[in-house]
Amino acid sequence: MHAQIVLFDGFDPLDVIAPYEVLCAGGAASGGAVSVELVSAEGPREVVSGTGGLVLRATAALDPGRAGLVLVPGASGRIGEPGEVPDQDAGAQVGEWRQDEFVPVLLGRTLTTELPALLTAAMENPEVTTATVCGGSLVLAMAGLLEGRHATTHHMGLDVLDATGVHAVSARVVDDGDLVTGAGVTSGLDLGLYLLEREVGPRIAHAVEALFAYERRGTVWHARGPVPVGF
């Protein structure tokens, strides 16, 4: 399985790094059955995150025709110019800004790039599984790609998913077939481990879990089985 993890200006670093490390470790544990790269809609470039000006390098353009996994992170930080390195002093004054106010704006900026068209093509490719961490599902939802689907996001964004016609689920990880979404930021660990289990096998996922000294949290939600009564 080849995983393309998408970078865009203002991305949340942990949304990227957590699944990146898990999937890379899965590749090592499986003898190369998993490969991972960082990509962007624009191609190779330095991409500024929304947290402390941390920069990661995309080494290729997102290729929606390549079989495997496309993973979209959420955003973090304050509103600035696209690609701007955040002011460290401004970022330290947490009381002066609210993530729930800024993040939707940062995510909405992706709609003015080539990313929505590339993600549309990826989701139309039967050989691609699309995954998201935290606000990454909001990127897809705001692009009109999740209507009628089951998905999750950070708890502060569940109402936004609902407003775009998504069946929002309050769960750590939601498996909707070729769409697998994670909730809050650290759910990237759980998402990555679940994808390893689903795509490569539970023994590989268990080995990575042991290596990271981390136990997956929560039940992976699927739209199957009886509907709970009285909840």
Rank of each mutant, 00 (worst) to 15 (best):
L145G: 02
F11Q: 00
P82I: 01
L14I: 14
T152E: 07
P104Y: 02
V85R: 15
V47T: 10
A207F: 09
D89Y: 11
G31F: 05
R216S: 12
V103L: 12
S35K: 10
V166Q: 03
L38D: 07
G27T: 01
L193A: 00
A18H: 10
G192Y: 03
I17G: 01
T132F: 07
V39R: 00
G201D: 01
P13T: 09
V48S: 02
G43P: 07
M1F: 12
A25N: 01
V160A: 15
V85M: 11
L118A: 07
G83E: 07
E42V: 10
G27C: 00
V229M: 13
V174W: 06
A143K: 06
H155C: 08
T181D: 08
T110F: 03
E96V: 12
V72T: 11
V166A: 03
Q93N: 15
R66D: 05
L38W: 04
V105I: 14
G225S: 10
D176S: 07
T113R: 01
G77L: 00
E127K: 10
E46V: 04
G148I: 06
G188Y: 01
P116Q: 08
A171Q: 11
L115D: 00
G32R: 00
T132L: 04
D176P: 04
M156S: 13
L195N: 04
Q93P: 05
A61W: 06
C134S: 10
L191E: 02
D12T: 13
P86I: 07
P73T: 00
V47H: 07
G26R: 00
Q4P: 12
T132S: 13
P126N: 08
A41P: 08
E209T: 13
H150W: 15
L189Y: 05
E124K: 12
V103H: 08
I5Y: 01
L119C: 05
W97I: 09
D159A: 15
D63I: 09
V72W: 10
L62G: 02
H154Q: 11
F212W: 13
S76R: 09
D15C: 06
L161C: 03
T219Y: 15
D176H: 06
L196E: 03
G148A: 07
P126A: 12
G80E: 02
G136V: 09
R66A: 10
V180R: 08
H2S: 08
A163S: 15
E147S: 14
A60F: 12
T130W: 03
A25M: 09
P86L: 10
V36A: 00
G52P: 02
D87C: 13
L158Q: 12
A75S: 15
V39Y: 05
D176T: 06
L62Y: 06
A168H: 00
H206P: 00
A205L: 05
F11Y: 13
E37M: 06
S76F: 12
S170T: 14
